[in-house]
Amino acid sequence: MRRIYDPESLLEAELLIGVLASEGVRVHLVGRDLVGAVGELPPQGLLGLAVADEQADHARALIAAYNGAQPLVGDEPQTFPGTLIC
């Protein structure tokens, strides 16, 4: 297994796990059990996404595509122009 990405939060980690799993990539979340100890441990670098070596390049490409995604033009409601409502 190879650590390929360090998410900023548990929420981002779970979201990316779902994205990768939907594409058939098996993911292990490193540090999940350490999140409760944030008051005791430095918050940076606790979480990491790890995948099998042969899936690492594909997983990195999926994460890069997700991080680079932009909302579609006209996909915004009229009542909140300039704001993407999920």
Rank of each mutant, 00 (worst) to 15 (best):
R32W: 05
L62P: 09
E14Q: 14
H58N: 11
G74A: 03
V27Q: 10
C86T: 14
P71L: 03
A61P: 00
A59V: 08
A56Q: 00
P7Q: 11
R3Q: 06
L47H: 04
V25L: 03
L15N: 11
G45M: 06
R32V: 09
A61H: 05
S9M: 07
H28R: 15
R3E: 09
L11D: 14
A69M: 14
L41S: 01
R32D: 10
M1Q: 07
G82K: 09
N67H: 14
D53R: 11
L41W: 08
L29F: 04
Y5L: 08
A52M: 02
S9D: 05
A64D: 11
A56I: 00
P7I: 00
G82F: 07
I17P: 03
C86K: 15
L34H: 10
A65Y: 07
F80T: 12
A65E: 14
E23S: 13
P77K: 08
Q44T: 13
L62D: 01
E54V: 06
G48D: 06
L49S: 00
P42L: 12
V73S: 04
L16A: 09
E8Q: 13
P43N: 04
R32G: 05
G18E: 07
L10M: 13
L84S: 11
G36Q: 10
G31A: 03
L16S: 09
D75I: 07
A64G: 05
Q70T: 12
E12Q: 15
D53P: 05
I4C: 01
Q78V: 15
A21D: 02
A61W: 00
R32E: 15
P71H: 01
L72E: 14
D6A: 15
E76V: 11
M1N: 03
P7R: 08
E14Y: 10
E12A: 05
P81H: 06
T79Q: 13
L29G: 02
G45F: 04
I63M: 07
Q44G: 07
H58K: 15
A13P: 08
V35H: 03
C86G: 13
L20T: 05
A21Q: 06
L10G: 11
A56H: 01
Q70H: 12
V30H: 09
P81F: 02
A50R: 09
L10H: 07
Q78N: 12
D6K: 11
A52Y: 08
E12F: 10
A37I: 10
I4Q: 07
I85V: 15
I17L: 13
A61T: 04
M1S: 02
G82A: 06
I63H: 01
H28S: 13
L10K: 12
E8A: 15
L29S: 02
V51I: 03
R26D: 12
V30T: 09
R2H: 00
V73D: 08
E23N: 13
L72S: 10
Y66M: 07
A56F: 10
L16D: 09
L84P: 07
I17G: 04
D53I: 07
R3P: 09
Q44W: 12
H58G: 02
T83K: 14
G82E: 00
Q70P: 04
P43W: 01
P43I: 05
T79W: 15
I4W: 04
M1T: 06
H28M: 12
G18L: 05
T79F: 13
L62V: 03
V73Y: 02
L84E: 14
D57R: 12
P77Y: 02
